[in-house]
Design a protein around this nucleic acid. Structure first.
Lengths: 160, 160
DNA sequence: TTGTGTGCAAAACCTTTGCAAATGT
DNA sequence: ACATTTGCAAAGGTTTTGCACACAA
């Protein structure tokens, strides 16, 4: 089976080429930050990306991390997730999928849902919105946090 | 056809009762802020809610708006949207639907999608996430902003 | 060589917090 | 009456900005 280029990890050379082809300069910082989005854990926060990127080059500044993440989003290499708590999270997986975000601990898991292609097409027809961003998001409570909330609820009842 | 209680606008009395039934005090500020979420435009920002609420009671503070919005979300009367730009937006429509967010101008439109109920159930089975929050979100570009971007793109080409 | 990109520090912005005074029940 | 809630102002955290220097093309 064949994956689209945007769903697989790119080499440094490919990353650099992709950046140049859009008219931007392929600096080592930009390549390092793109790699950090892949490697700094699953759906890493800006802080995590910054921490990881500075491991390979301690001189990289936080401002450059922000600049570069915006650039990478602009050229379609990463996607900013929308959860509002704390620092932004980025997803280097830019094929159509659903991100399920725990509204208690912030954990994000991916969910495959085939009809997303057709849904995006229908949305465009009905609303005129072009779904340029292939990531859908839903908030919920992960099983860990649900267990915890259950305990808290019981504790509250006991207090009364 | 019958709407569920959470999809229709509640009276002041019903709002107050809902708040009290959850063990909280039904202050005039809370009622005014809930009304402001309905009336301050579609999917209003905190700033818009604050502005609208202070029209009916100029003494309401921004801190109270934040406190109250969190409370209203907690008891299921409103839903915080996730777009990260600027101040948070709130949706008083808490039945299952998709919010389509323009990533250029921030406009939000609602989209009905029947399979969301089953999708939420499937997600829970597969991932263990309880989808407590009935709002799904997708980012895209609204038709206005697409037209504008088109112009910008053409302008850029012309500049070269 | 030249204009783009970087790093630094300060500013801007949104949200939360602490506390005394006010108020709903 | 009394715990909860409010308003104010200050603090906190994240992101953006301005500018001199560095560097990719």
């Amino acid at each position: 089976m064949c994956q689209s280029i945007v769903t697989m990890r790119l080499t440094r050379k490919e990353i650099a080429e992709m950046i140049r082809s859009r008219g931007y300069r392929a600096t080592p910082q930009r390549v390092a930050i793109y790699e950090a989005v892949w490697r700094a854990g699953s759906h890493p926060t800006v802080a995590e990306i910054y921490e990881y990127a500075t491991k390979s080059d301690p001189s990289i500044s936080l401002a450059t991390v922000y600049n570069t993440l915006h650039l990478l989003e602009e050229i379609g290499l990463v996607q900013e997730l929308s959860a509002r708590d704390g620092s932004a999270r980025y997803d280097p997986d830019v094929h159509f999928h659903i991100n399920i975000v725990c509204r208690s601990c912030g954990k994000v898991v991916d969910y495959e849902y085939k009809p997303l292609d057709k849904l995006a097409k229908d949305i465009q027809e009905v609303t005129g919105f072009g779904i340029t961003v292939p990531v859908f998001e839903v908030k919920g409570l992960c099983s860990d946090c649900r267990a915890e909330n259950q305990e808290t609820a019981i504790a509250s009842v006991r207090e009364m």
